[in-house]
Design a protein around this nucleic acid. Structure first.
Lengths: 199, 199
DNA sequence: TGTACATCAGTGAACGCGCGTTCACTGATGTAC
DNA sequence: TGTACATCAGTGAACGCGCGTTCACTGATGTAC
C-alpha cells in the first residue's frame, strides 16, 4: 500500500466517524461511508474486510489516542481529594467524549450486535471504573478499592457516559460549563462521602 | 380476531420480550420471536405488520402498566425530602427496570434506528426527569423546577438507566439491595444539596 | 529524460446472501339450521 | 345433536428486497533501464 492508499484508508475512517456521530453505527451503511468520503462503494473493500473491521481499526487508533492523552493530562498524579480535582476528571471525560464522539457511539453500538465489541466496550468501561474507584478509595482513606467504591465509581461512569450520549449531540457552542458543573457536583458528593449519615 | 387469536398475539409479545431481554432488540429476528413462542414464521404477520409494529404495541402496554404502577405506588405524594424517600424512588425504578427489562431495552434500541422510537424514548426520559426535577425543586425550597434541577435530575436518570442496563442482566438473586443503596446515596447527595460549598 | 511495464487506487454495474414477507394450503373452531 | 359451511389460526416453502460484496475494467502512479 502506497502513501496515497494509507491516506485513503484514513479518509474512510474519518468519514465513517462523521457519519456515525450523525446517525449512529448500526444505521450507517458501507455506501454512506464511501459517499461521505466522496468515493465509490467498491474501494471500501480494498482497505477493510467489512464495517466491523473498520471499527476495529478505529478502536485501535482510539486506544492509542486515549493513552497519549491520559498520560500527558493526568500524568501529574492529582489525588481526587477535593472538588477542583474531580472537576478536572469530569472535564477530561467531557472533552474526550466531544472529541471522540464517533468512536464512543461506534464502539457502544457495535457492542450491541457483536460479542467481540461487547467485550471491548466492557473493558473500556472497567478501566474507567477502576481509575475512579482507586482515586475514591484513596480519598476515603481505604487502602484498596473496596466493593462500595467500585459500585459508586460504576454508577458515576454510567452517569457520565449516558449524560454525554444524550447531551453532547444537542450541544450549542459554549454550553459546556454548566453541564460540567452539574456532573462535578454529583460526582464530588458521591466520592467525598462514604455514607450520608455523617454530615 | 377470536379469543385464541388475542392469546396468540399476547404470546408473541411475551416471547419477544424474553428474546429481547436476552439478546437485544436489534439482534432479534422475526423467526427468533416465533421460535421462542413455538410457532412458525408466517403467523407473525397475522398479528403484526413488522418488528417495529410489535414493539409499538409492546410500548403501549408498557405505558399503561407504568401508569397503573405509578398511580398506586407513588399516589401517596411523598416529598423526596430525606434519604428514605429517595430510596423509595430508586427502588421503584430498579424494580420497574427488572420487571420491564425487555421493554426498556427494546424501546431504547429501537430508538437507535427509528425517529419514531427515538421520540418515544426521549418522551419517557423527559417525563422521568420532570418527576425528579419537580421533587428536587421542592426539597430545595424553590418554587419551580429551575435549570439546575433539570440538569441534575437528567444526570441522575442517566445514572439509573445506564447502571440498570449494565447491571441487571448480570444480577444474581438477592444482590439488589447493595445496588439500591449505592444509587440512593448518590441521588440523595445530589438532590439534598444545592451546591457543595455549604457543608 | 523518455519509454515500457508493473503495481496500485478507484469505478460502478452485477451478483448473491440473509432475512423479512407472502401465499396457497391444512386443520381447528365457530355458527346456522 | 348432527351436518354443512364459513371463518379463523397456523404452516412452511418460496419469493424478493436491500445491502454487502465482488470483479472486470480504467486511469494514475511508481519503477527499471
Amino acid at each position: 500500500m502506497t502513501a496515497k492508499g494509507r491516506r485513503s484508508a484514513q479518509d474512510l475512517k474519518a468519514a465513517a466517524l462523521r457519519v456515525i456521530a450523525r446517525q449512529g453505527y448500526l444505521a450507517t451503511k458501507i455506501t454512506d461511508i464511501t459517499a461521505e468520503a466522496g468515493k465509490s462503494a467498491g474501494v471500501f473493500y480494498r482497505y477493510f474486510a467489512d464495517k466491523d473491521d473498520l471499527m476495529r481499526s478505529v478502536a485501535e487508533d482510539f486506544a492509542t489516542a486515549l493513552h497519549d492523552r491520559v498520560s500527558t493530562e493526568l500524568g501529574h498524579r492529582h489525588k481526587l481529594h477535593d472538588e477542583r480535582h474531580i472537576e478536572q476528571h469530569v472535564r477530561a471525560y467531557w472533552d474526550i467524549y466531544r472529541t471522540f464522539q464517533g468512536q464512543m457511539i461506534g464502539i457502544y453500538q457495535a457492542s450491541l450486535m457483536s460479542t467481540e465489541f461487547s467485550e471491548h466496550w466492557k473493558h473500556l468501561q472497567e478501566r474507567h471504573v477502576a481509575t475512579w474507584s482507586a482515586h475514591m478509595a484513596e480519598a476515603r482513606h481505604l487502602t484498596a478499592a473496596d466493593e462500595d467504591c467500585t459500585r459508586t465509581a460504576h454508577a458515576l461512569v454510567c452517569m457520565l457516559e449516558h449524560y454525554c450520549r444524550t447531551t453532547v449531540p444537542t450541544l450549542e457552542a459554549g454550553d459546556d460549563e454548566v453541564h460540567i458543573k452539574t456532573l462535578t457536583r454529583l460526582a464530588a458528593h458521591g466520592i467525598l462521602h462514604t455514607d450520608a449519615s455523617h454530615e
